[in-house]
Design a protein around this nucleic acid. Sequence first.
DNA 1: CTTTATTTTTAGCGTCTACTAAAAATGGGG
DNA 2: CCCCATTTTTAGTAGACGCTAAAAATAAAG
Lengths: 245, 245
Amino acid sequence: MHAAARKSAKHKASDDTVLDLTSARMSAPVEDYLKAIYDLAGKSGTASTNDVASRLGVAPASVTGMIRRLAGQGLLDYERYRGVRLTDGGRAIALRTIRRHRVIETYLTEVLGYAWDRVHDEAERLEHAASDELVERLAQALGNPTSDPHGAPIPTADGHVDERSLRTLADLDVGTRARMVRVSDKNPGLLRYLAEIDLTPGVEVQVLARAPFDGPLTLRVGEAEAVVGRGLAEQVLVEEVRDER
Amino acid sequence: MHAAARKSAKHKASDDTVLDLTSARMSAPVEDYLKAIYDLAGKSGTASTNDVASRLGVAPASVTGMIRRLAGQGLLDYERYRGVRLTDGGRAIALRTIRRHRVIETYLTEVLGYAWDRVHDEAERLEHAASDELVERLAQALGNPTSDPHGAPIPTADGHVDERSLRTLADLDVGTRARMVRVSDKNPGLLRYLAEIDLTPGVEVQVLARAPFDGPLTLRVGEAEAVVGRGLAEQVLVEEVRDER
DNA sequence: CTTTATTTTTAGCGTCTACTAAAAATGGGG
DNA sequence: CCCCATTTTTAGTAGACGCTAAAAATAAAG
């Protein structure tokens, strides 16, 4: 019945495969690929086979295969040996999946009492099973939050995200005051440590000193002080605080 | 936690596959098969290939294949042409899956405002993605309910269910007073209609009259009256109300 | 600008789950 | 007790995803 969407040129118009890509439900692996490509490509554009592979923990050869298929479905543009770029359809699905993930993470922490370092895995599975209706109900119960527990912006239901680029704590000049905005949700150990020193989204930080040769930074976090390694500092995204007005 | 993995193998235990069956995470299809077999076999014992197939909406041949594999894993006892029966391990997984399903259904209706006829599909997908921890948190938030919105008993975390057998509304003698206990969650139309006439779990019903030749029943539902077909009456499980004391 | 290293793709497979068509068991009616 | 309808199983396939090993492109280095 399905006449193999053969002639998928580099353009859209998937002739006979006239599915509504924007609202179609994809398999979990497909959603994962699209999410991975979305945030590897970032604003820049393309993602490489290898990067996608290591992000997803699969072999590069598997990525090539999946990518071919998804390109055939019009979810991404692909030229061999050239990397992939999401089409609007692919991006829409990626954003819906990310919205699900982040709303779920927020609900788990805000309502169900999960610690912020333990929501990622749970959300990773639920995001593929939750209907959009459920996600909207969760979002509503939360008062339509705009960011998740780790400070990541939650895309709106119609696919818009706040994509401003932030600086890392490691980039701040000594003395500059900033507000902790965001950190990846993927490293539980890091998250636990950050919680321990109270370096969580919204908190004010200031770099008090920076040891040479990429040494540790001494921070003021709220009222307390903390010394953190460069590696950690690079993971923490902040926004400068315009001095009081 | 207790309940060591009972070495249930009475026959061909699957040799090298020495997994802890009791807590192992199964794929969604496997969980679905076990659930289906659990409630087709009921207390009686075995389920037939055809019944499982039509319950799951797959071809009988597919059931044979899956059943062979599950038997190999020690989740069920199987003799070809003889039907299947869950082992203790298989039953444990079925019950945990059913617990997830019912806790989720309850949460969706009680907390998130879903109508009782719309929770089944959502729960059907979430039950395979939700961790046991999540389910326990949901159950706790609900005060550890013992039955779901449709009156089905929720198995406990350690695998016990209330399995008393109920009569259907169609079996009641005229005049008998009973309490509506339970109805299947799988037929949205039926559920909507029952909600409309307020025939929901806990409500008192009485058969006022029964037309001959399997005709409709006239009921008193709470304070109101309703006339329902035999087909519907057979779907509604009730328990007799011991006259006041 | 050729040689080497890296990245990406192809080829060939394996697993899980489902399907169809055809063969084999089972069991009910006469 | 035999025949036929029904149930169940086997055989052969398919598609989604993943893997490894080897070939092919591309990029880097001398």
